[in-house]
Amino acid sequence: MFSIDLLSNALVAGLLLGGFYAAVALGLSIVFGQLDIVNIAHPAFVILGSYVVYMTNTALGWDPVLAGVLFTPLFFALGVAVYRIYYAGFERTGRESLAGLAFFFGIMFILEVVIILIYGVDYRLVEAAYIGQTLRIGIIDLPYRMLVPFITAMAMTGGIAFYLSRTFTGRAILAVSQDRLALELMGANPIRIKSLAFGIGLATAAVAGALLIIIGPVEPSFGRLYIGRVFAIVILGGMGSIKGTLLAALLIGVSESFVQTFVGPSWADAVAFSVLLLTLVVRPQGLYGRL
């Protein structure tokens, strides 16, 4: 029962899962980690991404990954709009702690209910040629429904990391969280930079949603399971460090995969919370902490 076969497959499955988690947490890592905006509706936007991809896949036969990428401009615009409302209503007046949280909680709830009203509570899935196929290397199974999300997630994470560290606006996003006044003195408008960053954060949700529905069927309340997970990843990763986020995502993916294989599938959801609680108690600044 405790064979090398099982162990190595659990490890690989965990890494693939973790890579996908990085894609889900990436947007939150920017929004919560860099901008300090507690967007608890992020997983709900990921589910929205899954449903728009589902819609184009069933109606027009688009490839899910392609659809996810094509929807990023729309999600970017949505993100800019949400941030503008948040800024005008909460950030400017200094009410972000209580009212801002309630605002995102309300948005999460509205998104879920609207999806239920349109599509009902049934599970939905997408079709593509590679879903259901498996690549076998030696004793290791690599199902394409996990491999494709993993590769896409890595590409997106790499792209975002590159953008943040090498371009002017990317660095401005990192700067806005560190010293707002200094950024203003450099001639950048912090509100514009923050809108841009929030937009990018939500744009990643469109792709993450596509990956989510490739991995398995999705139903409207699915996002709730991801709240603990993504916040655990972002906090463990050290609030906004892309490298940290990736590492934390892989760590949680592997732990979940082991728990799933050796303890039982229904316990896997509790892993992220335990990690979250442990992080908060033992090392609140995360792996790559800046506090």
Binding site: V38, I40, S97, L101, R224, L225, I227, G228, F231, A232, I235, G264, S266, W267, D269, A270, A272, F273, S274, L276, L277, L280, V281, P284
Partner: peptide
């Protein structure tokens, strides 16, 4: 006790995740 010594937002996130874990416990 575990989360209130940190910033308030951690308490909010912890309670949200706690509800999900308690649900897992009850399911099992």
């Amino acid at each position: 006790y575990l989360t209130l010594r940190l910033r308030g937002v951690y308490f909010a996130i912890a309670t949200l995740a706690m509800a999900i874990v308690l649900e897992t416990l009850m399911v099992n």
